[in-house]
Design a protein around this nucleic acid. Structure first.
Lengths: 252, 252
DNA sequence: CGAGCAATTGAGACAAGTCAAAGCTGGTGG
DNA sequence: CCACCAGCTTTGACTTGTCTCAATTGCTCG
């Protein structure tokens, strides 16, 4: 039995709500716009978009979406990073992913959220009530199309993670994770040789279906094998990308 | 290392293609229609729908979608069941799910399929070429909306499976699986007490991230504990639904 | 400088995997 | 109609990768 007693009991956020009606052009300068479904709305209709949403900030460690709660709104992250996770009653946690700038959360057919979202650092978000989002989607089919694309991509990523969780060894999981992180946020650039891991070992463990100890041990082993370097706990350098990629695919 | 040497090397199907242009009303009588995204197309436009697709049959054990192949078409299953899976180079297999009547396959943003689909029994399907589907979706926004709903639901299911694969024990996985199967195909009825498992132990194992032996042993254990009965390898009776559900959620 | 938390490392336990040997079952052909 | 084969399933004995428990180290911040 894998009981993670270390779980932080999720604290519900007391969000700072800022109605955006004063600055109808807010969306036009949004940092998230280029990475978000919002860019499916033409520039002319920015005011319409801004009017449909309110913004808020979730403090580090607070949940702004809770599994099981009424799914009455959708969130678009404009700054910061959140962990998305599900819990078992005894505290075992599975992290579904990390949501960064531009990530859309809460697209549920069901009436309740199926996972929780907790701010890692200060998370800024836009909040769309369900009826308002529905109205937007009806008016801008391009946005619905974009949303379908994004959701499909997430499904593909989820299936890749299912392969990882169901069939890969601890070494392979870490290799896959590091390769993915090295590409993450690299934008149109090449995957990076060095990069930061903003999450804790506990987060990595709960994302990869392992324990903290196994994550730590496995990273040390990859280091001893000369595949990576770890300047500090939060930073990684990839020394042998080919080797790491082969490992991630299950070869050797 | 979890090497599944038992893998059947996927055989590419030699599909029986039947252009449907002679019977423009085919879609109106389709068994899959009530369960499929196609029902978003109004009855008046059935001919349009039928013209956009061709039908085919995949023989048991053949793949009609192959991971890595060009994703030039979408499939809608009208009869039979297929397993959707990903493979690692050494043969380890993870089944993403079982696709039955009405299931839509191949909605990829990427240009290649990200998993394979193999017929378990005789699978009848409708095939839509990519451009034709795009045209349909543009003409019938309701279909795109329906597709988004379906994709969202699949994402929710995939995340539930990630929790199972990452954090549940073998007993909990089997309990979750049996509960899910008992609801499956029950339609609007109550979950069934007795039901068939159309897939092999190997399929169940590869779906739950376990081995055949563990699946078998765990089922016998659940039987000895009085939670289930197994009249034959392909049939299950749930004796203690509450107990099984509690187990599936990780309690006890 | 020391409290508090995250990360590492070690030793031993255990759940699930591996290897191997029987049972079952359903289909085929003599 | 039955013997036989082939594939699936079950069961047993043993191995092992990962988890658990526990101690230590390292880092950050008041």
């Amino acid at each position: 039995m894998t009981t993670n007693a270390r779980l932080a009991t999720p604290v519900m956020a007391a969000p700072v709500m800022v109605p955006d009606h004063r600055h109808l052009g807010a969306c036009a300068h949004c940092d998230a716009r280029p990475h978000s479904v919002c860019n499916a709305v033409p520039a002319v209709d920015m005011a319409r978009l801004a009017a449909a949403s309110t913004t808020g900030i979730a403090q580090p460690g607070t949940c702004f979406v809770e599994e099981g709660a009424k799914a009455d709104a959708f969130f678009n992250i404009t700054a910061g990073t959140a962990r998305l996770f599900k819990l078992l009653p005894d505290g075992r946690r599975q992290i579904m992913g990390f949501a960064g700038v531009g990530h859309f959360i809460g697209l549920a057919v069901s009436s309740t959220f199926t996972f929780s979202a907790e701010a890692i650092d200060h998370v800024h978000y836009c909040r769309f009530s369900r009826p308002r989002l529905r109205a937007l989607l009806d008016d801008f089919p391009a946005m619905e199309q974009k949303l379908l694309e994004v959701t499909s991509s997430e499904l593909v990523a989820a299936q890749e993670q299912m392969l990882l969780l169901g069939r890969k060894t601890a070494r392979e999981r870490l290799a896959s994770f590091l390769i993915a992180e090295s590409r993450h946020n690299a934008g149109c650039h090449l995957p990076r040789r060095q990069f930061a891991l903003p999450m804790t070992r506990g987060d990595i463990a709960d994302y990869l279906g392992l324990t903290i100890e196994t994550v730590s041990r496995t990273l040390t082993r990859l280091r001893h094998e000369g595949l990576i370097e770890i300047p500090s706990a939060g930073d990684v350098v990839i020394l042998d990308r080919d080797g790491l990629e082969r490992l991630a695919e299950g070869l050797t």
